[in-house]
Amino acid sequence: MSPDTLLQVEDLAKRFVCHMQGGKEILGFEGVSFRVRQGTALALTGPSGAGKSSVLKCIYRSYLPVRGRIRYRPAEGGEIDLARASETEVLRIRRGEIGYVTQFLSVVPRVPAVDVVAEPLATGGVSLAEARRSARALLERLGIERTLWEAYPVTFSGGEKQRVNFARAVIRPPRLLLLDEPTASLDRRAMTVVIELLAEMKSRGTTMIAVFHENSPLDALMDERYRLPAKESPS
């Protein structure tokens, strides 16, 4: 890996075997290879169903790839293969360095929005009061109504949930940020703030890999694009 590379994906493939359907195989993607330089942003492109989100999930290890390597350079130096590193190792890197924003809210139930957002800071050693202050400031900036801060996000609208998700992922700017359609259900105003926040993070060195629809304003932040290889038509 060249010294300015943060992440290098080599010949990655994901296949799902559905044992409940007689071992039917579904191809997620294959032959995926790209690299991301430190502090830059890469867009994953390709038609719907090409496996873009699955690539992000493999990098985050929510999916187990069946082939290939995900070479990552941690803050402390050296190199680890996120496809094969031990779970404990992956958890450590996740907590300290990798953020992941999806279009779906995946937070713990019965926790108020402000605490959902504050949590990554609080577990990172900041006092709870201070973490909550930062969380409120971020929610404010993202245009979440003050009255919702102490409410449970389960009841929020799609756009509100997405902003809470986003706030949680960026409150402690990660080294690597994985973005899966982070603006899918946002109005123009919220979208503008999200783009601003991303631009700020990027200027401070956060590396990004993003999946988004065509014509998204996210495109302006991207330095490079990687198009996923076409899948062979099913035989």
Partner: peptide, 9 residues
């Protein structure tokens, strides 16, 4: 595995 991986994959 990681709990989210066990649940998702």
């Amino acid at each position: 595995g990681l709990s989210d991986q066990i649940l998702e994959d």
